[in-house]
Amino acid sequence: MKNEEKKTQEDIREMVKDINFAMLCTHAKNGHIHSRPMGTQGMDKDGNIWFLTEKDSGKIDEINANANVCVCYASPSDNTYVCIMGEASEVNDPKKIDEYWTPLAKAWFPKGKDDPNLTLIKVNAHEAEYWDSDSNKLVVGIKMISTLVTGKEYTDEGAYGTVKF
Rank of each mutant, 00 (worst) to 15 (best):
D44Q: 05
G39V: 12
I33Y: 03
A28Q: 07
G47H: 06
D44K: 04
G31Y: 06
N30Q: 06
M15A: 11
C25E: 10
Q41G: 02
M15S: 06
G47E: 02
D18A: 07
H27A: 14
I19Q: 02
G42S: 06
K45A: 15
F21I: 12
K45D: 15
D18H: 11
I19V: 12
I19D: 02
D44L: 04
M15I: 10
I33M: 14
E14K: 11
M15G: 04
N20F: 07
I19N: 01
E14A: 11
D44E: 03
A28E: 13
L24T: 10
Q41M: 14
R36G: 13
D44A: 04
K29W: 04
K45R: 12
M15C: 01
H27C: 14
N30M: 04
N48H: 13
M15K: 01
I19H: 01
D18N: 13
I33E: 08
V16Q: 00
G31W: 07
A22M: 02
H27G: 09
A22I: 01
L24A: 10
A28S: 15
N30F: 03
G31L: 11
G47L: 05
H27N: 15
Q41N: 15
V16E: 03
H34D: 10
P37N: 09
G47P: 06
P37I: 06
T40D: 01
E14R: 11
A22C: 14
V16G: 01
M23F: 11
M38K: 08
A28R: 12
M23P: 06
R36Y: 04
D46F: 07
D46N: 15
M23H: 05
H34I: 01
L24C: 11
C25V: 15
M23W: 08
A22H: 03
D44P: 06
H27K: 15
M15R: 01
I33K: 08
E14P: 00
H27S: 15
N30P: 08
M43W: 07
I33D: 07
I33L: 14
C25G: 09
A22V: 04
V16I: 15
T40I: 13
G31S: 09
G39L: 07
F21A: 08
G47I: 05
H34S: 12
M23Y: 09
C25H: 08
R36D: 05
A28V: 03
K29D: 15
F21L: 04
D44C: 03
T26G: 09
G39N: 09
H34G: 02
T40P: 01
D18Y: 02
I33H: 05
H32Q: 13
E14I: 00
K17Q: 13
K29N: 14
H34A: 12
T40Q: 08
D18F: 02
Q41L: 11
G47S: 06
K17T: 06
N20K: 15
G31D: 09
M38Y: 06
R36V: 07
T26K: 11
G42Y: 10
H32M: 13
L24Q: 08
G42D: 08
D44Y: 04
G39W: 05
R36A: 11
M43N: 04
N30S: 09
D46V: 02
S35H: 00
D44V: 02
G39Y: 02
S35F: 00
G31F: 07
D46L: 13
N30L: 05
